[in-house]
């Protein structure tokens, strides 16, 4: 098992983190920073307002950044026949999807937490809020990664799959977003705990839902 896990993870990271032609992790991060930069221009230089709403903006920007690589997550490998070749070698779709969730998270979760530092400065967040945002992102982004891979597997092969995928991820990411952004206001620690809970549920479902979707797409 581990003999196959590492080559798969290495390949996924090379594609998603370093990216080659797809742009890798850099494009979503730049997109995230652009949103954080544009927001003060849009609402004006009202420091208390920015500090109050900035955490929520970071969360929305993180969600949008997680959607960007959706069409590269599963569909190209189905088109190339890679899933068929893995199946012949007894490598289950569930294992491949689990590895992909991990690689997808590594390619946007930690970079996003780093990019949240300059974003927090741009939005004038204080230290306590920044810490809550960072812990929230750590708890929430694995769930967003699992959701992204699941939806990418479900929409692989559909016409307009990329647009449809984005549309499907947003409503299903609502629990993570509500608890994550809510932890900045009244929610506090229980908000973070609920973010992690929502995240864990998504992580537990992803391999099975994604694996079944890949098999169904084979037809």
């Amino acid at each position: 098992m581990s003999g196959r896990f590492l080559p798969l993870l290495k390949r996924d990271l090379a594609r998603l983190l370093l990216g080659g032609r797809g742009g890798g992790a850099l494009l979503p991060i730049l997109f995230f920073l652009c949103v954080a930069m544009l927001y003060p221009f849009a609402v004006g230089p009202d420091a208390p307002l920015l500090a109050r709403t900035g955490g929520g903006v970071i969360w929305v920007a993180a969600l949008l950044a997680a959607i960007l690589p959706l069409d590269r997550l599963v569909e190209p490998d189905i088109d190339l026949g890679l899933f068929d070749q893995w199946a012949l070698r007894g490598i289950s779709e569930e294992l491949v999807i689990s590895v992909r969730v991990l690689a997808h998270w590594l390619s946007f979760g930690p970079p996003l937490m780093l990019a949240a530092l300059p974003a927090a400065a741009l939005l004038g967040l204080d230290g306590d809020s920044l810490l809550t945002v960072e812990i929230g992102l750590l708890a929430g982004t694995p769930g967003l990664a699992a959701l992204g891979v699941t939806v990418a597997a479900l929409t692989a092969g559909l016409r307009g799959g990329a647009a449809l995928g984005g549309l499907l991820v947003i409503p299903m990411a609502v629990p993570v977003l509500i608890f994550g952004a809510g932890s900045l206001g009244t929610g506090g620690e229980s908000g973070l705990a609920l973010t992690a809970a929502a995240s864990l549920v998504l992580l537990a479902i992803a391999p099975f839902a994604g694996g079944a979707a890949v098999r169904a797409a084979r037809g």
């Binding site: 390949r11 190339l80 070749q85």
Partner: peptide
């Protein structure tokens, strides 16, 4: 082992 029209190479 299967060889079809898709080479399964990146």
């Amino acid at each position: 082992g299967l060889v079809d029209e898709r080479p399964a190479l990146d």
